[in-house]
Amino acid sequence: MNIAFLSRQNLFFSVQRRRNRGLNGLYIVVGLFLLAYAMLFPGLLGISGFSKFTQNWFPLALVTMAQALLMLNGGISLAIGPLVSLGAVIAATTMGGPLGPIGGLLAVAASGLLVGALIGVIVAQLRLPAIIVTLAGSFIIGGIALIILPRPGGFIPDWLSNLLAGNGPVAFGLLVLLLVCWKLFLATPLGLGIYAVGDNPVGAFRSGVPVDRVRVTAFALSGLLTALVGLFVAAQTGSGDPVIGTPFTLNSIAGAVLGGVGFLGGKGTMRGAICGSLLLSVMINVMFFLGFSPVTQYVAQGLIILAAVAIPELTSQWSRKP
């Protein structure tokens, strides 16, 4: 096709192709899982089945992106879950008020950006390790969510719930839009700075990359994505819940790790992370529909995460041996 033709001469596309390196195995695994899923539930191929499936995947994909963004930059966030909750309660309390749905959306986005940027400033300027700052931050953010809305409730307009979580593939469309935005961001000097700062902060600084600004940007964007997940989840359930985000912290890390994003920064790709989240989402769905008991689900999930990390490591070890 067109792209394949261009890639032979265009640096941008050949760089893009190179980034698929090492991901082919993951693509195949994801493809097989999707195939199995489609065979088990042919409904997936219809509009409504597809919409439902992508709606389940959408929040996981976004938090995984949010986490991968930080991990690529050499950080990590243990406050993803509480921030999702915060987004949900802000959406549920503002949309019925004088601000209206649009104002509510802006309030959610602004709070996500603000919280993320604040964490970023603390990490970058005060030189505190991200894992601890976000651990402490998770208490603060969770507390704020509890104060705004002590128990599940609030209001989300029906039309919004129907739009985002109804029978149309809006969520999938939004995901595609987000991926395009990420591609554009990565084609800016600031976006590539995320990789450079994650892999070699001193070198990046010497090359003229504004290291602190890159770090704060990464945390702010990650916060924005996370808070928007809260809005989506609130629309899905039709109300706000101050603890609804809790499982997302671990799942976001699991998705990113499944997708091959490394812990030490600069290693991995966003496309890998998205695939990782898709794999995780399909697995959870399949196990649920096959009637696996929660016990086996837990055990299987743990095993799969372990295998995803251990197998590439072991194979590279073996191939290195003479």
Partner: peptide
């Protein structure tokens, strides 16, 4: 309230970190 308690706890850890946990 539980919310305020959680906020105070988190802020305290953060504040203590600023004193002792610089990296």
């Amino acid at each position: 309230s539980p919310g305020w308690r959680s906020i105070m706890f988190g802020s305290l850890i953060l504040a203590l970190l600023l004193i002792s946990g610089r990296e």
